[in-house]
């Protein structure tokens, strides 16, 4: 997810705290050392506890699709200043959600373990949207999660360009393997209806 990192006219910068909440990485800001939940888009401890980050619209897609649609795009270079081999996936052989990795265990059979899903949690309800099912056609999927009406915008090319509530506020969401999602949210429901 992408956030504006300006709060009260101050630009924060973020690092990786090494702490987890609900198996999701907590970031920290260098300015106040507050802890921030990526999923909640909110500071959860420290001087800024309770403050919220603004989520900005972002797209997860392939380089082919993005560079064709945005010929003037610029891109983050692999020359990062860090000695890393970016041709290797550091999590090869593991299922992973935001810096959590764990070996394969028992998986609910609703979906194939490595089916990719869009995961949304609102209130006490978690729901998984299998990407293979929802990205077939462009349009808007309207659904109710945790009592709230949500809208998932699918662009041509199967790109998911946003998840919002009925006040058009962007909602946090994750793209993860089914295996990981059902491990974190054992009671998750799975979106089934076809449009």
């Amino acid at each position: 997810m992408v956030y504006s990192r300006t709060i009260d006219d101050t630009a924060l910068s973020f690092g990786v705290s090494g702490r987890l909440y609900k198996s999701n990485v907590l970031l920290y800001d260098h300015q106040t050392e507050s802890l921030w939940s990526q999923l909640m888009a909110r500071a959860v401890a420290g001087p800024m506890a309770g403050d919220r980050l603004t989520i900005l619209p972002s797209h997860r897609t392939t380089w082919r699709f993005w560079s064709a649609r945005h010929p003037q795009t610029r891109i983050l270079s692999t020359r990062t200043g860090f000695d890393r081999n970016y041709t290797i996936d550091p999590y090869e052989g593991y299922y992973r959600v935001s810096s959590i990795w764990f070996p394969v265990g028992n998986v609910r059979k609703d979906l194939p373990a490595k089916e990719r899903v869009l995961g949304i949690t609102i209130g006490n309800e978690a729901r998984a949207y299998p990407l293979s099912r929802i990205t077939q056609d462009a349009g808007v999927i309207e659904d109710v999660v945790g009592g709230e009406t949500i809208r998932i915008q699918i662009d041509p090319g199967g790109e998911i360009s946003g998840v919002s509530d009925d006040r058009k506020t962007l909602l946090p969401h994750l793209f993860v393997y089914w295996f990981a999602w059902q491990a974190f949210y054992p009671d998750t429901t799975v979106y089934a209806s076809s449009r």
């Binding site: 900005l56 997860r60 897609t61 945005h70 003037q72 795009t73 610029r74 983050l76 990062t80």
Partner: peptide, 29 residues
């Protein structure tokens, strides 16, 4: 970059920018 490499893309004030997932994998933010 290879064509099938996943990216996270944003457009801000008309400027498009892509962040390769293969880099984000190693740095998180």
């Amino acid at each position: 970059m290879y064509p099938d490499d996943p990216v996270i893309g944003v457009v801000i004030n008309g400027q498009a920018r892509a962040y390769p997932v293969k880099i984000l994998n190693w740095h998180e933010v």
